[in-house]
């Protein structure tokens, strides 16, 4: 079922050091990873990034194939990166040009580096969602945003809304399939006809789905209120988050990676003043 494919994969249950990490540590490490990936602007930088990504995947006990599967829906981004780089970068030997579009040796080099970089970033991000349950994830986000709630930022509410939204995704997927089949039983076709016809066919699909979303929201809010839910004030946690050895090791490893990347980057800038 095509509808069943989820972007960035679902939680992959395993018992690994990465799975056991504190979600806050994982979020911070992932964030550092993403930001520092920007530092990798040449082959050496990309290689360092790749090595550390592979170490992380190995440590998570998730088969490489599974990680690849989880980013597959996003491959078009990579293809887009390749095309953009090949046609727009004008450096080195120029093979062909038409207006602003040029194909040059520099373009190919850029295409390879940028594609690998974006690909590795996707790998890193999907590793986060593969090893962390949505509950842990929202818990971590809430905890990280908690300081902001002093200045009136609704961190708990945002975390709660996120986890509810994530919780209901499969429900709506199921209902969407059911509604689609019901309308198909009445002779509707969703994969044929012109764009206009297909767009029109969204109404019989989406309108009952929205109605159902409102129904669920209504019932859920009633159920939450009847159990005295009143937001974050004075609310405690069953599973308090706690940093441990794994988390400090992860911080150490990511620090090494960042330092290496900075060194490599400084050398490049020192040598030729390469643009970012």
């Amino acid at each position: 079922m095509k509808l069943g494919a989820t972007i960035f994969g679902r939680y992959y249950a395993a018992d690994s050091p990465v799975h056991r990490m504190d979600p806050r540590a994982k979020l911070i490490v992932a964030l550092i990873y993403m930001v520092s990936a920007v530092l990798a602007v040449d082959m050496v930088g990309v290689a360092i990034l790749a090595v550390f990504t592979l170490i992380a995947i190995r440590a998570s006990h998730i088969p490489l194939r599974e990680v690849y599967n989880s980013i597959k829906p996003l491959l078009f981004i990579l293809i887009f990166t390749i095309i953009l780089n090949v046609f727009t970068v004008n450096e080195g030997t120029v093979y062909w040009h038409w207006g602003t579009f040029t194909i040059s040796s520099g373009g190919f080099r850029h295409a390879v580096i940028f594609t690998l970089r974006v690909g590795l970033m996707l790998f890193g991000a999907s590793l986060l969602t593969l090893t962390t349950t949505t509950l842990e994830l929202t818990d971590g986000i809430e905890s990280l945003l908690a300081p902001l709630s002093r200045i009136g930022f609704p961190s708990h509410e945002i975390a709660m809304m996120t986890s509810i939204a994530l919780r209901f995704l499969p429900t709506f997927l199921d209902e969407g399939i059911k509604i689609k089949r019901a309308q198909e039983s009445r002779g509707a076709t969703f994969d044929e006809g012109s764009i206009i016809q297909r767009t029109k066919m969204l109404v019989p699909l989406l309108s009952p789905l929205f109605a159902s979303a409102f129904r669920h929201a209504d019932e859920l809010s009633m159920a939450m209120e009847s159990r005295c839910y009143h937001g974050s004030e004075g609310r405690t946690k069953t599973h308090a988050l706690k940093m441990g050895r794994n988390d400090y090791i992860a911080f150490a490893i990511i620090s090494v990676m960042v330092i290496l990347l900075i060194i490599v980057r400084l050398q490049i800038t020192g040598d030729v003043g390469h643009p970012a």
Partner: peptide, 30 residues
């Protein structure tokens, strides 16, 4: 699908149109 009509559980959850007339006519129009 012309010959076999299926009413799923809670078929009213598939209603979508702004009027009853429009909703009932969905099948024949298809």
């Amino acid at each position: 699908r012309k010959h076999v009509g299926i009413a799923f559980q809670y078929p009213e959850y598939q209603l979508f149109a702004t009027t009853v007339e429009e909703d009932v006519s969905f099948g024949p129009r298809n």
